[in-house]
């Protein structure tokens, strides 16, 4: 099975995506999506992504829920900052956080989460010094952001490493 599907999760995701896009479970689309997910799984071998094993699905669900809650909260917070009167501009700034993640996939996930959350933007990660440069819209709460990043780091470490 491994020889046919070198990246099983990726192939399953592609299979489901194709069915969703077509919105049908007719035999024809199932055959086509099986073909596509097998073929593209082989293409991925050429790209050689670093592989990590997903463990503890329960933890993953909890982590996803926590991220969703954070995104909703910071949506409201950033909307408030934007709608502030011109006299009181937001106090923005750069900050560095020490992040000790080796796994490439965990780093990529952390980058996506932090940038997708309004209020924090990922700028640079220094691999040697293991420090991450962020730009935040509300620098007054620097400690809060630091704790949030640390929490994500711990969560990702548990899931991926």
């Amino acid at each position: 099975m491994r020889a046919w599907y070198p990246y099983p999760l990726f192939s399953i995701a592609l299979f489901l995506m194709w069915l969703l896009l077509n919105q049908s479970v007719a035999p024809g689309s199932i055959v086509l999506s099986l073909f596509l997910s097998t073929l593209l799984g082989w293409v991925m071998v050429k790209l050689q992504p670093s592989q990590s094993r997903l463990r503890r699905l329960g933890l993953m669900a909890g982590f996803a829920l926590a991220v969703a809650a954070d995104i909703i909260r910071s949506n409201v917070a950033v909307a408030r900052i934007i709608l502030r009167p011109r006299g009181k501009p937001a106090n923005t700034g750069f900050m560095t956080v020490d992040v000790d993640l080796e796994n490439e996939n965990a780093l990529a996930l952390l980058a996506c989460i932090l940038t997708a959350t309004p209020g924090t933007a990922w700028l640079e990660y220094d691999r040697r010094q293991k420090s991450l440069l962020l730009h935040v819209l509300d620098i007054d709460n620097e400690d809060l952001w630091r704790r949030t990043v640390k929490r994500y780091e711990a969560g990702l470490k548990e899931i991926l490493e």
């Binding site: 949506n75 950033v78 909307a79 934007i82 923005t92 997708a116 309004p118 933007a121 730009h135 819209l137």
Partner: peptide
């Protein structure tokens, strides 16, 4: 709309990085 307003109102380039994420997430 708030995300687009943010693009208009926030002063520096780095600040404006945050505005579109409201539109795309929320």
């Amino acid at each position: 709309l708030i995300g687009s307003l943010g693009l208009l109102r926030l002063p520096s380039f780095y600040d404006r990085l945050h505005a579109p994420t409201i539109a795309t997430s929320g």
